[in-house]
């Protein structure tokens, strides 16, 4: 007689918090729908073991002006809309985005300094063009981030936008702006479990409720340190499931930005033949970075190429089959 196989089912004492991005009219905003992530009571896609109320979601990254430094492949993919963030957002929605991430630049298309007024107008137009919840990231310079994000937080009051990025060296103003206008924040730390946790605590200490914080532990791209990001995410998720409350935040990662920075995605010339077709490989570089991170526990993935988005969404659909 065969041995009876007893399927091991792990009992987890904790679960990830649910975080809702965006607000519909009933919820005080203007989005056509809001998106809730998190809530996991087990490891990614192990439906048999615990509740997994929400699948991972994809945010397509758009910029307030044509990002000249992006790979030509990306510029080509968004060619008709790349000069107009509103049209870009709309197109991104058509191409399957669940969320739109708008990145503000230091300078506008004319090379002049970006200002709070300009940023507000961009946000206004993007909000009008898409019904998806928005994430808005600053250009990544402390003073400029604070200046622009405070302004756009006011412009988007009530929309439950995710403001980013909060880093240890600069989070207070962004959190304050989120507090003032009912938004969420992205808490980013450099690939370390304890640092991730610590920044969540600091942000929470300022009075922002935990259901308004996404945890962004950063990652490297495929071939550029993805294994660090991957393991840190797995460890964070395990800690969350083991009941460590300050790690129980949904995870946001930016595989698009990371992968498209890699030479493998960016460059056409002067590369080994063994790398194969440029476009195919570049798209796969972003796709594989993203799918690996989903398996490690990512809840929101910020991506860039519409074809990668399609492939990752397909994979998510196939993984999102609940047994029984």
């Amino acid at each position: 007689m065969a041995e009876k196989v007893e399927i091991p089912v792990q009992k987890w004492s904790g679960r990830v918090r649910e975080v809702t991005l965006g607000a519909t009219k009933e919820e005080g905003g203007t989005r056509t729908r809001s998106v809730t992530v998190g809530g996991e009571a087990t490891l990614p896609f192990l439906h048999f073991e615990g509740e997994l109320p929400h699948p991972p979601r994809i945010a397509i990254e758009i910029q307030d002006k044509k990002p000249e430094e992006w790979s030509p492949l990306l510029l080509k993919a968004w060619e008709e809309v790349i000069d107009d963030p509103a049209a870009w957002a709309k197109k991104a929605e058509e191409r399957g985005a669940d969320l739109i991430l708008l990145r503000l630049s230091l300078d506008d298309a004319q090379g002049e300094e970006n200002t709070p007024e300009k940023a507000k107008s961009t946000v206004r137009r993007v909000l009008a063009a898409t019904g998806l919840p928005l994430l808005i990231f600053g250009p990544g310079q402390v003073d400029k981030d604070n200046e622009l994000l405070v302004a756009v937080a006011e412009e988007a009051a009530g929309e439950r936008v995710v403001l980013g990025v909060c880093e240890e060296k600069n989070y207070r103003t962004i959190v304050a702006a989120a507090l003032a206008h009912g938004h969420l924040v992205d808490s980013r730390t450099p690939m370390d479990v304890n640092l991730a946790k610590q920044l969540i605590i600091l942000i929470h200490d300022m009075g922002l409720p935990l259901d308004r914080i996404l945890m962004d532990p950063s990652t490297g791209a495929l071939g550029y340190g993805i294994e660090y990001g991957y393991s840190v995410m797995e460890r964070l998720r395990l800690a969350a499931l083991h009941g460590d409350t300050m790690t129980q935040q949904p995870i946001l990662v930016t595989p698009g930005e990371e992968a498209w920075r890699a030479k493998e995605a960016k460059v056409e010339e002067g590369i080994p033949e063994a790398w194969g077709d440029w476009e195919e490989r570049a798209i796969m570089w972003e796709t594989m970075t993203a799918t690996a991170l989903i398996e490690a526990g990512a809840d929101v993935m910020v991506m860039r190429h519409p074809e990668s988005v399609r492939l990752v969404k397909e994979a998510i659909d196939k993984l999102w089959v609940k047994e029984g």
């Binding site: 294994e227 393991s231 194969g276 195919e280 490989r281 594989m288």
Partner: peptide
């Protein structure tokens, strides 16, 4: 078998199987 798919796959394998 296609180098454009093989290279990312091999890289992923290398990364995941790196001794942390």
């Amino acid at each position: 078998f296609d180098p454009a798919l093989a290279y990312p796959l091999l890289t992923l394998r290398q990364n995941i199987y790196t001794d942390p």
